[in-house]
Write a protein that binds this DNA or RNA. Structure first.
Ligand SMILES: [Mn+2]
Ligand SMILES: [Mn+2]
Ligand SMILES: [Zn+2]
Ligand SMILES: [Zn+2]
Lengths: 144, 144
DNA sequence: TATTTTTTGCAAATGATTCGCATTTTTATT
DNA sequence: AATAAAAATGCGAATCATTTGCAAAAAATA
């Protein structure tokens, strides 16, 4: 299997503890570039490995900073955790409730806002979660 | 039971279909002013009514626009849905991972950003979810 | 008051995620 | 390479928030 990864996003000891399964998970997330949940990944890798292994693998990858995740309540498939490869900058997403896909918002619209809030409320912000829900351009055009 | 509600936040036919239980849910949410999940409310109303009724009541109140909700993954209590009374303007919250409470962010820091995104990506934004996770002022001061 | 509709309590079902444990694979040590 | 120790996997069972079926209770309507 060919290992294609962008250096800067990988911890130094990449090959340490990187099993075939974990690597496959990374490949899938890297190939799709959109947030995927466990069952979506399971589809992608059918009969290749177990769902529990996928969950365990994703958790491992997250605690070791290869991927990050968020929970989202899709009107079609309910509340699930979605995973993405960690990139240079963190990302937020818009979710279309017609085609149920995620689209990345290239730059975080909260840059200044967060430091303002920290200053004003003395709250130390470790993480922030932002998701938009609506109708994507494509679905808006093809008026179903 | 005394009915204290702020007019503007209540649909016109407030008393229609407003059962004792649903009213109690509103009272609790209105009294606490912070996002509460079903079990939290259940504590508050112990032996008064059933957990399933709480869920059903909250769902009713949400579809009828009395309350709104979001899912949040608290490091202590996991992924749960939190409900708040609907106020004039929608609200976002900071969650402290030391005392596990929510604090409202009085004004939404996404005002302009959203219309920019709609314009740039042709995505129609129906809802947006923003939550901050960190350490609140109080917990930061009392260095545990 | 009688009839219809809605809500409730309780128990059982659901669905995403986790966990226990025996087995297999990987890593470290002779 | 062979052996011993450690970590990962598959499978099934457990967990936990939330939902649902159903019969009884309450509320709305006639
Ligand atoms: Mn969706
Ligand atoms: Mn918490
Ligand atoms: Zn779409
Ligand atoms: Zn705190």
């Amino acid at each position: 299997m060919i290992r294609i990864f962008i250096d800067y996003l990988l911890p130094i000891f990449y090959f340490k503890c990187m099993t075939k399964n974990r690597e496959k998970l990374l490949m899938i997330l890297n190939a799709n570039k959109v947030p995927m949940n466990a069952s979506l990944i399971y589809e992608d890798t059918k009969d290749s490995f177990d769902l529990a292994t996928i969950y365990r693998g994703l958790n491992y990858l997250e605690t070791n900073n290869y991927v990050s995740s968020f929970v989202f309540d899709c009107k079609e498939s309910g509340v699930q955790r979605y995973f993405t490869i960690k990139e240079e900058s963190h990302k937020h997403y818009m979710h279309c409730e017609k085609c149920h896909t995620f689209t990345a918002i290239p730059l975080c619209p909260l840059k200044n806002a967060l430091s303002d809030i920290e200053e004003e409320y003395g709250f130390i912000v470790d993480e922030h979660y932002l998701t938009l829900r609506g109708i994507c351009r494509h679905c808006a055009e093809t008026t179903l």
